[in-house]
Write a protein that binds this DNA or RNA. Structure first.
Lengths: 206, 206
DNA sequence: ATTGAATTGCACTGATGAGTGCATTATAGT
DNA sequence: ACTATAATGCACTCATCAGTGCAATTCAAT
């Protein structure tokens, strides 16, 4: 009764306790931040004895490390490669924008951002970790824009800035309000995507 | 020697200790967040006895409240009124954009954002406080765009979203990198402003 | 110089939280 | 059944931190 067996607790305490712990860490850290969660709470959420945390991990920080590692690899699979060749510019930009929005849609993503901003002050490696996951996408997007420019489809003097602008158009209407204006009415994703693409092409289409 | 007199310490401990405390709170809270600063540190930074904090304020949270109150009124004076009538659209948009960038330029502004995002989880009134300061500007901008549309200068079906887009264009190239990509090369403010205005007008100019 | 308010120093309380040591118990694979 | 491994319970240590009570002290204004 005290030690829940694997059959009565889906968190699989006995075997795979590490995974159960990291799962719990993801649920708690993303909602309340690193400093806002105690090891006791973490143990309870994982359905595991407090002492087990220290059998499996060297420290609280280590748990956060492993959690971020897992999240990073998950995020890394978000935008499928080869999207760039699936039609004309307008279509591809729409696909990318939709991918980005879907990617940021789950509340846990906002939680990840909040945790990054919050605990990144004390642990800069957190910010670096998220950046190293996000940056490649931005770079890929920049390369795509450069390609379109060399082909003569776009007239885009600063591809990197253009990439930032495009994401800014999306974030300004979606992510930003979610971070700073908790209860604001947000436009529909379809409108956001459509208008971002329109404005971007109005400026840069050759 | 132990208690620094007003003449040797500009923080004016004896008289105006409240102000000295709020000053210290601003320096510390904006850099390390509410939870990251102890009352001992705060007292030392203010050049004041720890006990004085509790003579002047009911609690640590009260100090934060007063600090945010002061910052809010300061921010409220940032964008001078009447900018909307100082020339043609392009010129005014440029002025607004420059105002926004100047407004966000100081490192303390990023500190304020970080603190808002971080401690806003535990104290939602922090987020609300910042939002109540920023929102009026967004609303004013929206009204300006609506006006331009009714006058026939812009063709802008969703003024509120357009306002978000314009700010998104700026933030995507400036604020966002500062929050999430610590050591990234950023474009010059002039280019950012110019390109934001160009893209915006390329889409919405009637 | 005296008075009254603000400030100070210091020793408290009470709570929380990370991390450890160790003996005990349950489990999985043989 | 047996054994190695993992999990557990529990009582610790050590540190930090918000907040309080109180007596002593310092300063400013009269």
């Amino acid at each position: 009764m005290k030690p829940p067996s694997p059959s009565e607790n889906p968190s699989t305490p006995r075997t795979g306790s590490r995974a159960a712990i990291v799962n719990a860490a993801e649920r708690l850290f993303l909602n309340r931040g690193f400093g806002g969660v105690s090891m006791d709470e973490l143990a309870e959420e994982a359905g595991v004895a407090r002492r087990t945390l220290y059998n499996q991990f060297a420290s609280k920080e280590d748990i956060l490390r492993e959690m971020l590692l897992r999240i990073s690899t998950q995020l890394g699979r978000a935008l499928p490669p080869g999207i760039e060749t699936q039609g004309d510019v307008e279509e591809v930009l729409g696909l990318i924008a939709r991918g980005v929005l879907a990617f940021q849609a789950p509340p846990e993503f906002v939680g990840l951002l909040r945790m990054t901003v919050a605990d990144g002050r004390q642990f800069p490696w957190i910010t670096a970790a998220l950046d190293s996951v996000l940056k490649p996408y931005l770079d890929r997007f920049e390369r795509y824009l450069s390609h379109l420019m060399s082909v003569g489809v776009l007239d885009c003097p600063h591809p990197f800035m253009a990439a930032q602008q495009f994401l800014g158009l999306l974030n300004g209407s979606t992510l930003w309000p979610r971070l700073f204006s908790p209860d604001s009415v947000s436009s529909s994703p379809d409108t956001v995507v459509e208008e971002a693409v329109r404005m971007f092409l109005a400026r840069y289409r050759a």
